[in-house]
Simulated assay, not measured.
Amino acid sequence: MLQMTFKVGEMLEFSWRQDRPVVVNERMFSAAVLARAALIAVAHTGQTITYGGLSKAIDGLYHYQQLGRLLDVVSYDCFRRGEKRSLAALVVLSTSTEPSYGFVHDDSVQMADYQRLVQLDWQ
Rank of each mutant, 00 (worst) to 15 (best):
R17E: 13
D19A: 14
D19K: 15
R20F: 01
V22Y: 06
V22I: 12
R27A: 03
A31D: 03
L34C: 03
R36T: 09
L39S: 03
A41H: 14
V42Y: 07
H44W: 12
T45D: 10
T48R: 15
Y51C: 13
G53H: 08
I58S: 04
D59N: 15
G60E: 09
L61N: 01
Y62R: 12
Y62P: 00
Y64R: 14
Y64V: 04
Q66K: 11
G68N: 08
R69G: 01
D72K: 14
V73P: 00
V74A: 05
S75R: 10
S75W: 01
Y76D: 05
Y76T: 04
Y76F: 09
D77V: 06
F79G: 09
R80M: 11
R80S: 09
R81Y: 06
G82W: 06
K84D: 12
K84Q: 10
S86D: 15
L87E: 05
A89C: 03
L90N: 08
V91D: 04
L93S: 05
T95Y: 05
T97I: 08
P99R: 04
P99W: 01
F103D: 09
V104A: 12
V104F: 05
H105F: 15
H105E: 06
H105T: 07
A112D: 13
D113V: 11
D113E: 11
Y114V: 01
R116I: 00
L117W: 15
Q119L: 06
Q119T: 08
